[in-house]
Amino acid sequence: MAEAISGRYLTFVLADELFAVPVGRVEVVLEMQRVTRVPNALPFIRGVTNHRGSVIPVVDPLLRLEGVPVDLEADPAIIVLQLDFSGEALSIGMLADGVREVMDLEQSMIEAPPRLGGRMDSRFIQGIGKTPGGFVVILDLDAAFAATSDGVAS
């Protein structure tokens, strides 16, 4: 598992908790738009959507981490991200209840994820950032979503 390093992060909210992903991975943040369900897809994939003429998968991080779906009726945002899929770049859309800000995190502010306990699946967490405003969970995007089966990333 890759260790979280210092740098700029985009923070967003999922079920009242603050999460972060490296800004370098973010292409754009979209307002909620129609997501088309794909029958028989992996459970954490909510469907596909149109992004600049391409069809990209839309993943649900809350479903992946806690087994609870993001409410699509509540107009979540879609953060378009670059994923490393076995060495190939892949664009995906990730649902988020709301997008907050871009912040800098120093290495010293980042702690390793807790081994056990908590509601979240720690396999998909890269680290915990401690900021004056509180904790922020840094997602391990590739581990969480670059999967072809229900297990951990390929």
Partner: peptide, 17 residues
């Protein structure tokens, strides 16, 4: 193409806008 995340999806061969 639906892409590699949907590799094992059966019954759907692609998408269109």
């Amino acid at each position: 193409p639906l892409g590699r995340m949907f590799k094992d999806v059966s019954g759907i061969s692609g998408a269109t806008i």
